[in-house]
Amino acid sequence: MEKNMTGRDGGADLIPVGNTPVVILVRPQLADNIGSVARAMANGGLFHLRLVAPRDGWPQPKAWRAASGADRLLDHTKVFDTVEAAVADLQHVFATCPRPRQIIKPLLTARGGACEMREMTNRGLKIGILFGPERTGLENEDFVQTDYWIRYPLDPRFMSLNLSQAVMIMAYEWWMSTEETPERQLQTNKTHIATKGELNNFMNHLIRELDHCGFLRNQEKRPGMIRNLYHLFQRGEVTEQELRTLHGVVAELVKGPMK
Rank of each mutant, 00 (worst) to 15 (best):
R8G: 07
G11N: 10
G11M: 06
A12Y: 04
L14W: 08
I15M: 03
P16V: 04
P16T: 05
P16Q: 02
V17F: 04
G18Y: 03
N19G: 07
Q29T: 15
Q29K: 14
L30N: 10
D32C: 02
N33V: 14
I34H: 09
G35E: 06
A40Q: 07
M41Q: 11
M41H: 10
A42P: 01
A42Y: 03
A42N: 11
G44R: 06
L46I: 06
F47N: 07
R50D: 08
V52F: 06
P54R: 05
D56W: 02
W58E: 05
P59R: 11
Q60Y: 03
K62M: 12
A63M: 07
W64Q: 12
W64H: 13
W64E: 15
W64K: 15
R65M: 12
R65W: 03
A66N: 05
G69T: 10
D71V: 08
D71A: 13
L74I: 10
D75R: 15
T82L: 01
T82M: 00
T82N: 04
V83K: 01
V83W: 01
V83P: 02
E84R: 07
A85K: 11
A85Q: 14
V87Q: 04
V93R: 01
F94I: 00
A95E: 02
T96K: 04
P98Y: 05
P98S: 12
P100C: 07
K105R: 13
K105V: 08
A110P: 05
R111K: 13
G113M: 04
G113Q: 03
A114M: 06
C115V: 12
C115Y: 08
E116M: 12
E116I: 07
R118A: 05
R118W: 08
E119M: 08
E119P: 00
M120G: 01
T121H: 02
N122F: 06
R123T: 06
G124N: 01
L125S: 09
L125G: 02
I127N: 00
L130K: 06
F131W: 04
G132E: 08
R135K: 15
T136Y: 02
E139T: 13
N140V: 12
N140C: 01
D142M: 07
V144Q: 13
V144A: 15
T146A: 15
